[in-house]
Simulated scan of single mutants.
Amino acid sequence: MNEQLLKQRIKDIQHYYGETLSNKQDLATNICSMNAPPPDRIKEILKLIHPDVQMRFYGCGAPFPPLLEGTTVLDLGCGSGQDCFILSHLVGAEGKVIGIDATAAQIKFAQSFVDYHRQIFGYPSTNVHFQQGHIESLEELDLPPASIDVIVSNCVINLSISKANVLAGMARLLKPGGEIYFSDIFSDRRLDQSLKDDPQVVGECIGDVLYFEDFIRLARTTGFNDVRITHSHLKSINNEEIETKLGGAKLYSMTLKLFKLDLEDRCEDYGQIAIYKGNLPDAPDLFVLDREHIFETGRAVPVCRNTADMTTKSRYHTLFDLMGDGKKHYGLFNSGKSKQFDADTKVMQTDAPNNCGC
């Protein structure tokens, strides 16, 4: 990692989000915005979030996986703290939320609303802690290895010039079976180097986004062999000058799921069947693991080894019954081609052997 380049990038980002932007109306593009309304459970919590916090929200997704009660969640690039306060409600009084951001002004702003949300939620003490730090250097924070259940992030990792360090740091902090669930911007091709040198384009979460297939490759190098997509939306830029600089490249807001498990890099068949028990209160009829794996309550579904492990070796293990001991291998799982992006949103399709389409 080029330390001088990293320091300059951090300085540029801190200036953009600490001084250039005072609220989301100052954004020059439509990239750091939501494409779809959040789930109903999040809408209800948002009614409790202070309006000033909401006005300084720059996320592109809703990275809130189910079954968070009592867990420890780390938010990378927490900004004004909106997602942390939502998570504070989701994990409950016995859970814990840690927000990390490199910009001192953002941390100070978020901290000023801690007691407000504690009182709104009726907690005897706060379960949210904010800390200034760099997501590329998570080892420098006072966080023990294997101490985090879930790591989330919302339109932030694209800003880093050392995404491998970010992924490695997350792998170190996650408990075995822990989950990364994050929303970010990806491109359908590798972007021109000149975009990485434009502070505004970088600050708008465009300049250093990864080509999605390169992210898959990078994730594998840090031990995350199976990247699952939960949501994907084609982004509009709403800025003709910046769109011209993209030279025809398309950008997507995607929410991804990665597990700290010993998974294979292909979908392999071991004759296993998963059955969702319907015991998640918010999802009595269907459980959505990712957009290719939607389980109806009580229905026996053949699954590859990776999906079997995701449903039984993570915090979701209480939700599923698994049939088959997985000792005999039957070759590649018969999944055909896996869709990377929705045809409904007129975005690209591609083969994805790493992204299981069981």
Rank of each mutant, 00 (worst) to 15 (best):
N2T: 05
L5H: 12
K7C: 04
I13V: 15
Y17W: 06
G18L: 14
K24W: 13
A28W: 09
T29L: 02
K43E: 14
E44C: 10
I45C: 09
L46D: 04
L46S: 06
K47C: 10
K47T: 13
L48C: 14
I49F: 04
D52N: 12
M55W: 10
M55E: 10
R56C: 08
G59C: 02
G61Q: 06
L68K: 14
G70R: 12
G81I: 09
Q82W: 02
C84N: 06
L87M: 05
L90V: 07
V91D: 03
V91W: 08
V91A: 14
G92Y: 05
I98Y: 02
D101E: 03
D101Y: 01
A102Q: 11
A104I: 06
Q106G: 11
K108A: 14
F109S: 03
V114I: 10
H117I: 05
H117R: 09
R118L: 01
G122N: 01
Y123N: 07
Q132K: 10
Q132P: 03
S137T: 04
P144K: 12
P144I: 08
S147E: 11
I148Y: 04
D149V: 05
V150N: 05
V156F: 03
V166A: 01
A168Y: 09
L174A: 09
G177L: 00
E179M: 15
I180T: 03
F182K: 00
F186Y: 15
S187G: 11
S187V: 09
S187F: 04
L191T: 11
D192P: 06
Q193W: 13
K196G: 05
V201W: 15
V201R: 13
V202Y: 10
E204Y: 07
E204D: 15
G207H: 15
Y211T: 02
F215E: 12
I216P: 00
G223A: 12
G223P: 15
G223T: 06
F224W: 12
N225P: 13
S232G: 12
K235V: 11
K235A: 12
I237N: 08
N238L: 14
E241M: 08
K245P: 02
L246S: 04
L246M: 11
G248P: 00
S253D: 07
M254E: 11
M254H: 01
M254K: 03
L256I: 09
L261Y: 07
D262H: 07
L263W: 00
E264W: 02
R266W: 09
A274W: 00
A274H: 00
A274T: 05
G278V: 08
A283C: 09
L286H: 10
F287W: 13
D290F: 05
R291A: 02
H293A: 01
E296Y: 06
T297E: 08
R305V: 00
D309H: 01
T311S: 00
L319W: 02
D321V: 09
K328H: 09
K328M: 12
H329D: 15
F333H: 01
N334C: 10
K337S: 15
D344E: 14
K346F: 15
T350D: 12
C356Y: 02
